[in-house]
C-alpha cells in the first residue's frame, strides 16, 4: 500500500475528510460534527474540549495502514481509550450491524426462487455472527471496561483492597487476552461466500453496497482490535503489576 502522509494538529479538518472520506465515521465517534469551516483539527478539538493528540493518533492510524503508534497511544489515560472504544462499540451495534442486516434482508426479498435458499443461508450466518459480536462487545462493556476503570481508580487513590488483589490474581487481563477472539474471520468468510460462491443475485446494487460495508466493518474491527490488544491490554497489565507490587509493600 502507498505510504500516506500523516495529518498534524494544524491540518484543516475539512482537508482530512477530503483526503480520506473513510474517516467520516471516525470523527463522528468523537462527537465532531460537520460545519467546521476552515478550522484545524486542533481548533475543532479545543471547541469540543477533546484531547487533540488522541484524536490525531486515532485518525492517523486509520488513515495509514503502516502507522500504528502503540507507545504514543499508551500514554493516554485508560478512560480516554475506553470511552473511545465504547463509542465504537455502539457505532458497530447501533449502526453498522443494522445497516448490513437491512441489505441482506433486501437481498432475500429480491431473491429468485432458485437463489432464495442461498441468501437465507447467508442471513442465518450473519445472524449468528451478529449474536457473537453482541456478546463479545457486551462482555467488554459490562465486565472488562469497568474492571479497568476500577483498577485505575484504585491505583490513583492508593486504596488497595484485598478484593482487587484477589481479582487480579484470579482473573487478570491476561486471561481475557487469551480468549479475546478474532471478530474479523467470520466477516471475511461472509465476504468470500458472496464474492466467490453465491450465484449472481437479481439486485446487484444492494449486493455491492453490502460488500463495501463488510469491507469497511472488517478494517474498522481490525483497527479496533489493535487498540485493544496493543494499547489497552499492555496498559492494564502495567496497572495490575503496579497494584500487586504496592500491595506487597504494604
Amino acid at each position: 500500500m502507498k505510504q500516506k502522509i500523516l495529518f498534524t494538529t494544524k491540518s484543516k479538518m475539512a482537508d482530512v475528510i477530503h483526503t480520506n472520506y473513510g474517516l467520516i465515521p471516525i470523527i463522528s465517534r468523537f462527537g465532531i460534527e460537520f460545519g467546521f469551516g476552515n478550522k484545524t483539527i486542533e481548533e475543532v478539538c479545543s471547541d469540543k474540549s477533546i484531547n487533540v493528540w488522541f484524536v490525531l493518533e486515532i485518525i492517523n492510524s486509520y488513515h495509514n495502514d503502516n502507522y500504528f503508534p502503540e507507545k504514543k497511544l499508551q500514554d493516554f489515560s485508560t478512560k480516554l481509550i475506553i470511552d473511545y472504544l465504547s463509542n465504537t462499540h455502539s457505532y458497530y451495534l447501533d449502526n453498522k450491524i443494522i445497516e448490513i442486516q437491512d441489505y441482506i434482508n433486501e437481498m432475500e426479498l429480491a431473491a429468485s426462487i432458485h437463489n432464495l435458499q442461498n441468501i437465507k443461508l447467508l442471513n442465518d450466518f450473519f445472524s449468528e455472527y451478529r449474536e457473537e459480536l453482541k456478546q463479545h462487545l457486551g462482555k467488554e462493556d459490562k465486565l472488562i471496561f469497568p474492571y479497568i476503570k476500577n483498577l485505575e481508580k484504585i491505583s490513583e487513590s492508593g486504596k488497595i483492597t484485598k478484593e482487587i488483589v484477589d481479582q487480579i490474581k484470579e482473573n487478570s487481563i491476561e486471561k481475557y487476552e487469551k480468549t479475546h477472539d478474532n471478530l474479523e474471520v467470520k466477516l471475511s468468510d461472509l465476504k468470500n461466500l458472496i464474492i466467490k460462491f453465491i450465484p449472481p443475485v437479481l439486485c446487484p446494487e444492494i449486493c455491492q453496497k453490502l460488500l463495501i460495508e463488510l469491507f469497511r466493518l472488517e478494517s474498522d474491527l481490525q483497527n479496533h482490535a489493535n487498540i485493544e490488544e496493543k494499547v489497552l491490554i499492555p496498559k492494564v497489565k502495567l496497572l495490575e503489576k503496579k497494584i500487586l507490587k504496592q500491595s506487597e509493600n504494604k
Binding site: 443461508l121 447467508l122 450466518f125 449468528e128 474471520v185 471475511s188 468468510d189 468470500n192 461466500l193 466467490k196
Partner: peptide
C-alpha cells in the same frame, strides 16, 4: 478463502 466451520458448511 473460508476459515470458519459455519462458512465451510454454507
Amino acid at each position: 478463502g473460508i476459515k470458519t466451520i459455519a462458512g465451510l458448511t454454507i
